[in-house]
Computed example of a mutant assay.
Amino acid sequence: MYQKIIANTPKFLMFDLQPLSENKHFIFGADYILIRPKQNGCILHLSSTQIPLVVGQLVLLAPFYPFKVSIDNNKVSVGDVLHFRLNALGQTFIDSIQFSNIKNMLDHAKQGLLFESEWLEPLFEIMDNIENTFDFKQLLNILMLLDQLTKTSPSQILETHQLAFSTTKRTENRVDNVLQYIATNLAEPLTVTIVAQQLHMAESTFSRFFHTHLGVTFRQYLIEQRVKQAARYLVSTDWSIAHIGAEVGFSSLSNFNEKFKTLLQVTPRAYRANHVALRENIGNSPSIQGQLQKQFHQWQA
């Protein structure tokens, strides 16, 4: 009998550090995963393999790689799980010579890599300093962590008999393509029909595909992206509220006001007024993108 597999795409831009805890079903996510056990007693389940994890190890898994974790003795958490994705870095940077060693390592993570060496201690120190904040130093920590990991050879390839996900790479590309299409066409009257045509899918197939891999409906995702972009414009431009609403694809000012307030619990006008200080110091302020993402997390909690 096949194990149930659940799509999982956490809402973050670059990375998210979470406690290593037990999950009942296989997780099939769109992120790279770095698992660090801090206590013995947890087992990593892959498609046909079970790997007991112990202190001093690191496991690197590629996107769309089904896994789950079981923990002995009902422990709540026995370590850390670092989810990270590359899209926020930009394709030019990912394809650069400077990033080539990291990219090569990540390409080899499709079968799962286990690292176990005394040379991992500096990496653990970096992980201990990673926080879920939007400070630029956190991005540097992630890059430093990956760079250091390329200097350590994996002690084991975890899964030589993976589940037959022959379409994994194509699926990953399709997700990237549809998100990029939405991002560059927010001002257009996007519909399921229009976007499904970009992937040459039937509407019903596309709707299932989108919800499976993004964890939300197409309409919900589209509204969230439009509101986020509108919030950036409210802080960074002098455009009128009506112009911003139209610029991000809302059909009317009333619809824009309604959707914005539903998601951010404040009207566009009040949001702009509340962020005057951020706008006045925009050259020295933390990323608007990061601040906005933090607010979404707070209001969705």
Rank of each mutant, 00 (worst) to 15 (best):
A231P: 09
T267L: 01
I241C: 04
K228D: 04
A277L: 15
L278R: 12
I223G: 06
L222G: 01
V276K: 07
Y221R: 01
L263M: 09
T217P: 08
N255M: 07
E224R: 08
G215C: 06
F256M: 07
R269D: 11
A231E: 02
T237C: 00
E258P: 01
S252L: 00
N255G: 13
Q220V: 13
A242M: 09
A270C: 11
V248M: 01
K261P: 03
N274S: 15
Q229D: 09
P268D: 08
L253V: 15
H243M: 13
N257V: 03
R269A: 13
P268C: 06
Y233G: 05
L253H: 15
T262S: 13
W239Y: 15
R219P: 09
V248E: 01
R232N: 04
A273Y: 13
A230D: 00
K228E: 11
P268M: 08
A246L: 07
F218W: 01
I223A: 04
W239R: 02
V276M: 11
Q225D: 07
R219V: 10
R226I: 01
A242T: 12
L278F: 07
K261Q: 14
A273E: 15
W239C: 02
V276W: 00
E247Y: 02
R232S: 13
R219K: 15
E258N: 13
W239S: 10
Q220C: 14
G249W: 03
T262M: 14
S240C: 14
E247S: 15
K261S: 14
L234F: 06
A242N: 10
L222E: 00
F256N: 08
Q225T: 03
R269F: 06
S254M: 02
S252M: 09
V266R: 08
L264C: 07
N257S: 15
S254I: 02
A277I: 13
H243R: 13
L234H: 08
V266P: 05
N255A: 10
L278S: 13
T267K: 04
N255T: 07
A246W: 05
F256P: 00
A231F: 10
S251R: 03
L253Y: 10
V227H: 05
R269G: 05
T267H: 07
E247V: 06
H275C: 11
L278Y: 11
T217C: 12
R232D: 08
W239K: 09
E224H: 01
D238S: 12
R272I: 09
Q229M: 04
P268K: 04
Y271H: 10
D238T: 12
Y271E: 08
T267Y: 02
A270Q: 14
G245C: 05
G215H: 08
Y271K: 02
A230N: 00
V266M: 14
V266H: 00
H275G: 03
D238K: 14
F250L: 01
R269H: 09
Y271D: 00
S236K: 12
L222C: 01
V235H: 01
N274E: 15
D238H: 15
Y221W: 13
L264A: 00
A277P: 05
E258Y: 12
G245I: 02
V227S: 01
F256R: 10
A277H: 14
K228R: 12
V266G: 04
K261C: 13
F260Q: 06
K261F: 06
Q220D: 15
R226M: 08
I223R: 08
G249C: 03
